Computed example of a mutant assay.
Amino acid sequence: MAGRGRKWWWRWRSNALRRREDVLEAWLVPAVRVLVAVDDFAQRRSDRTPVRAVLIRDRGLGR
């Protein structure tokens, strides 16, 4: 299996019909997806509001 993957990679790299746009797209699409995921995570995190816990009554231990 590994040899087959290497052969495909070699054929793609040495292909005369390979365009720069193909290489750019191969790197750009995953990079944009990662940036969108990070931005979404940052947005969700900023939407959370910190809440303080206040003890109203001390019930004691074991009661």
Rank of each mutant, 00 (worst) to 15 (best):
L61T: 07
D40K: 10
A2M: 10
G60M: 08
W9M: 12
D40W: 02
A42M: 12
R13H: 06
R19Y: 00
I56T: 11
A31E: 05
P50Y: 00
F41Q: 04
G62A: 12
R63W: 01
V36R: 13
D39N: 06
W10A: 12
D39E: 07
D47H: 09
G62H: 13
L28E: 13
A26I: 01
R4P: 00
R44N: 14
L24R: 10
W9Q: 11
A16T: 06
R44W: 08
G5L: 13
P30K: 03
G62Q: 09
V29K: 09
A53Y: 11
R33W: 01
V23P: 00
V38S: 03
L55G: 03
L28G: 04
A31H: 05
V23A: 12
V38D: 02
S46A: 15
R18A: 14
D58E: 10
V32D: 00
N15Y: 06
R45S: 14
A37D: 02
V36M: 14
S46I: 12
R19Q: 10
R52S: 12
L17Q: 11
G62M: 13
A53T: 10
Q43H: 07
V34C: 12
R11S: 08
R33H: 05
P30R: 04
W10L: 13
L28A: 14
R6N: 13
L28Q: 09
D39R: 10
W12P: 00
K7I: 14
R4V: 13
V32I: 15
Q43G: 05
R6T: 10
A16N: 03
R19K: 13
R44M: 09
R18D: 01
I56P: 01
P30V: 03
R19P: 00
R57P: 01
L28S: 08
D47E: 14
R11Y: 00
G60Q: 06
W9R: 13
R44L: 10
R63E: 04
L61S: 07
A2T: 07
R45P: 01
L28D: 05
T49I: 07
K7P: 00
R20G: 09
N15E: 07
F41W: 06
R6I: 13
Q43C: 09
V32E: 05
R52G: 06
R48S: 05
V23N: 09
P50I: 02
R57S: 11
A2I: 14
L61E: 08
R33N: 11
D39H: 05
A42N: 08
I56F: 01
L17F: 01
V29N: 00
A2R: 09
R13G: 00
V36P: 02
A26C: 11
V38E: 03
R45A: 15
E21M: 06
R11C: 04
R20Q: 02
R44H: 11
R13N: 08
V34M: 14
D40M: 09
G3C: 03
R63N: 13
L17D: 09
R44I: 02
R45H: 07
I56W: 02
R6K: 10
A37W: 08
I56N: 08
S46M: 07
A26Y: 14
K7S: 11
V32T: 08
L28R: 11
R44G: 15
F41E: 05
E21I: 05
W9G: 03
R6S: 14
R48Y: 02
K7D: 07
D39S: 14
V32S: 01
L35A: 15
W10Q: 12
Q43V: 15
D39W: 11
A31V: 13
W9Y: 14
N15D: 15
V29E: 03
G62N: 12
G3D: 10
